[in-house]
């Protein structure tokens, strides 16, 4: 464990807490893409298949359980909760995310560390996570204005993978045989996809104005 990875995990945790706060405090999921939440639930379920077989550390196991439980809780809440579900922007959240799942799975079959069940699903989860934010970014683009908590949620979600890139660079120079090029390339793509969001987020922060995405 290094400071970059710990900072990344904490940033990721903060993004989830901000999302839960937004839904719980405002009893509304307006501006949140259910499709992105479903993709993230799939990412965690397919990435942590080794949850009960490979014990890494207490921290690792607890974080995996938190990520799986929180992503499933948000999906269930957005689908089932009678008050929250009414605020879901159903007609704005129309990204065809099944294509993202299909593309990630095909790529995982072609590009993986080893052609085994666990490695293919791990690569699938890495590729899918890089693309999972697209429905959310499209939804924000369409809805135009971004409420504070939603903006912070997306910001922290994008920032965590940037910390992981620093972690991979650090581990590359400090550990022999360390090679995570699948995660690293995918993490780079993932962070770049947030570039324009980060730009408009920074502008709104500098002008202390409400965040506006160009329609």
């Amino acid at each position: 464990m290094n400071i970059f990875r710990f900072a990344g995990d904490m940033t990721h945790l903060i993004s989830i807490l901000v999302l839960l706060l937004k839904i719980y405090a405002t009893k509304s999921c307006s501006g949140i893409s259910l499709k992105t939440q479903e993709l993230y639930a799939l990412v965690f379920l397919t990435r942590y298949l080794d949850l009960f077989t490979d014990f890494i550390s207490v921290y690792n196991t607890i974080m995996k359980l938190v990520f799986i439980a929180s992503s499933l809780a948000v999906v269930c809440c957005m689908r089932m909760h009678r008050v929250v579900r009414r605020s879901y922007d159903k007609d704005l959240d129309t990204f065809r995310h099944y294509f993202l799942i299909l593309a990630s799975f095909v790529l995982a079959l072609l590009v993986n560390e080893k052609f085994t069940f666990q490695e293919i699903f791990w690569a699938f989860s890495i590729y899918l996570e890089a693309l999972a934010i697209l429905p959310q970014l499209v939804l924000l683009q369409r809805s135009g204005n971004v409420d504070n908590l939603t903006g912070q949620y997306v910001f922290f979600l994008g920032a965590y993978r940037a910390f992981y890139i620093l972690n991979w660079i650090y581990r590359y120079f400090t550990e022999q045989h360390f090679s995570r090029w699948i995660a690293c390339v995918s993490g780079l793509v993932q962070t770049v996809l947030y570039a324009d969001f980060f730009y408009y987020y920074f502008i709104s922060w500098k002008n202390n104005a409400k965040m506006q995405l160009p329609a």
Binding site: D54, I56, F67, E175, S179, R180
Partner: peptide, 10 residues
């Protein structure tokens, strides 16, 4: 060697 084999990251 073990560390790079086992997926020790989240």
């Amino acid at each position: 060697k073990a560390s790079s084999k086992v997926k020790d990251e989240l």
